[in-house]
Amino acid sequence: MSFIEVKHINKTFKVPIREDGKFGAMKSFFNRKYRYINAIQDISFSIKKGEIVGYIGPNGAGKSTTIKILSGILTPDSGSVCIDKMTPWIDRKKYVSEIGVVFGQRSQLWWDIPAIDSFNLLKDIYKISDEEYEKTLNELIELLNLKDIMNIPVRQLSLGNRMKCEIAASLIHKPKILFLDEPTIGLDAVSKKAVRDFIKRINKTNNVTVILTTHDMSDIEALAKRIILIGKGSILYDGTIGKLKKNYDYLRKVKITTKDNIEIKRDYIINQVKIKDEIEFVIDIRKVELSDFIKAISSKISIIDIEIISNDIDDLIVRLYEEYKI
């Protein structure tokens, strides 16, 4: 049995309907109507110990609901979750001492005082012994370069530095599993890299299992080999990024600078746009080899410059969302 085993979980939310109009608020106060939203339906997956998994999907797809269930905050309506031989919402106290959670948009640090004080409080909350605390803290300080920022009130820290402290705070009790909910949101390139490198590092050295939700695909590319794509509450794809690319990454943009005019129609040309001296083709490389296309085109016009752009993963995901209509 895997480290994390999720089987057929469902969750429905009951949401009151607001009525419009003058007395809408009043009406709905006395006679409340509800609608039911299937946040997630029949989700199953399993994750091995030490894996990094990217959990992606558009807004409102059910990502945070799943994370909340996995971290024991919510109880699903049906289905079972078994993580390290525990059910999160039943063995709550024991279970949560083994996980760390970072919500990118929410802070667990005390705003007005230095981060080190928050760490000290967490030491008491998790009942960590002095030696162990000392050891872990020093490790974190060194890896995340916290030495100079730890004694500054959190409100005065930059977002990047705050996120570093935030991550350190969630690791102070040495969790086996780390849930990261948009950990790089709003960070600059340098901080992003620092955070990613650190996540990789602790995954490797401490064998921490990482589950990561993000809208930043470069996060996923840098960290996770495996992604789980969720849309409208169901799992649409579960596998490696490589395989996903193979299946969906078949479009290439070819930008050609030329003085000539040309209008060609072939089944492998999905789209062509001409702007001044530049023509942009979108080519389906499943139907034609790129070299053949260039040969064909160079026989007709003179090419001053050529640029081939492969898709970044964002485009891929957009295409994926479109394909699944989510």
Partner: peptide, 12 residues
């Protein structure tokens, strides 16, 4: 403010 979730994540 959703901070109650955070309390549920702690073993106390």
């Amino acid at each position: 403010e959703g901070n109650f979730d955070r309390l549920l994540l702690r073993p106390r």
